[in-house]
Each structure stands twice: as C-alpha cells, then as structure tokens.
Amino acid sequence: MADVDNKALFEFLVRMGDNTLILGHRVSEWCGHSPILEEDIALANTALDLLGQTKMWLDYAGKVQGEGKSADDLAFLRDAWDLRNVLLVELPNGDFGQTLMRQFLFDAYHSIILGHLLKSSDDEVRAIAQKASKEVAYHLERSADTVVGLGDGTPESHRRMQAALDYLWPYVGEMFETDDIDRAMASAGVAPEPSGLRADYDALVGRVLADATLTIPEGKFAHKGGRNGYMHTEHLGHLLCEMQWLQRAYPGCEW
C-alpha cells in the first residue's frame, strides 16, 4: 500500500461510514410505516445493508485512528459536529417519493464511487468495496425502478416526485466536492477525486430521470458543509437524539 497519512485516511473512512450510518438510520425510520408491506420490507433490508456497511467502514476507521475505538463508539459517541456525512442523507424522509428520490440520488453516487474503490490501493478499502458494491447495485436497481415508476406514474405521483427532485437536487453537488483530504486519498491511490465522478453521475441520473419524465432543476447552487463538518443541517441533531439516546442515557450499555 502507498504511503498514506492516517489522519486523512480516517477522515475519508468516516465520510464513507457516516453516509451509510445516517442514511441507514433515516431509511430505518420507515420500518412499520411504509405504504405497503413489500416496501416496508425492502426499506428495512436496505437500511440493514447500509448499517452492515457502516460497521465495516467505522471498524476500519477506528483501527486507523488507533485510539481503540469500535464502530459502535464512533457511531454512538460522536456529536453532530464530528459527523462527516453529506447533507443529502440527513434530510428528513418526507413522503415515500422523497425517500426514494433521496435513495436514488445517493445510490447512483454510491455505486459509482464503490466501483472505483474496487481498485483502491488499500486492501481493506478494496475488500469493503467488494462486499458493499454488490448490495448497492441491488439498491440502485430498486430505487431507479421506483423513481421511474412514480415519476412516470399518475399526475399525483409525478407531481410529488418532481417536488422531491426540486428539493433534493441542490444537495447533490456536495457529493462531488473535492478538498485536501480527497486529494491526499487520490494521490495515494486509495480513492478517486469526487469531482472526477460527476460526468458518470450526470449521465446515469440524467438517463433515469428522463425515463421518469422528471426535469432536473437548473442552477448550480449546492448546499455544503456535511462532509467537511463545517455545518450540518438542523435535522442531524434531531436524528442523533433518537439514534444515540440509549448510549447517552445509559453510557456503555450493552446487550
């Protein structure tokens, strides 16, 4: 493996792990609330995959950090300002259409970056990507199909999907921000520069959204501040309140 700065590698790993952690938790909020049983089961299974991937990323992050922290420690004992997920995944679920649109916009990015991580110079990153990419290919197939089904569906479902896309689109740009950590990862061959993934993303997402008869909003404005920890949305704190409640009320509790 190439020479890598452990601090930068840790940051990269928590970015990966926090995306799946927070989205996994969001998706799990649907458990028992979905419009029909099949969708409920599908969302719960998607959440489960994402949490499994979180464990792999954060376990490795803990190892790289070298302070003896487990994936659980990193997931449950950090506060909002230490989380490094993109803002897109912490946004509230909204209606079912908004949840699936958010899932699709993330799955498309996730599948593309994991495809590159299959060639990572870091053995552990490569192994995690191998495992995760198979699951994410399945997630993408499902979310893309659902976005097309609902976008090109009834006038009501179309209207809701367009509203979801209009709301979520300004959060897409953050996934392709490139900073010093990304450049360090790229020069060590660990991970690609996110900005280089945008063309593939636009092609993939453009194709599916066209099939869905949805219009990508104009304008380049992008909300940022999640993946570099500068400023999360107000929604993250509320999410953490629920997700971390047990460890905060009963520190160190296990079963």
Partner: peptide
C-alpha cells in the same frame, strides 16, 4: 416478481402465475 426483497436480506418475493402460490427466491449475488 412481487418484491426485490424478502424476509431476509438474501431473499426476494416471487409468485407463481399457475398455482398462484407466493414463494421466496434466494437472490443471486
């Protein structure tokens, strides 16, 4: 196909259009 997911992460839900019984399919990965 009824649903891409089933009772466990490794399965999907399908249905037979002849005997009409639902069944689980072990996903190929």
């Amino acid at each position: 196909k009824l649903s891409q997911f089933g009772s466990t992460p490794c399965k999907a839900q399908w249905r037979c259009t002849d005997c009409l019984e639902p069944f689980e399919y072990f996903k190929c990965i």
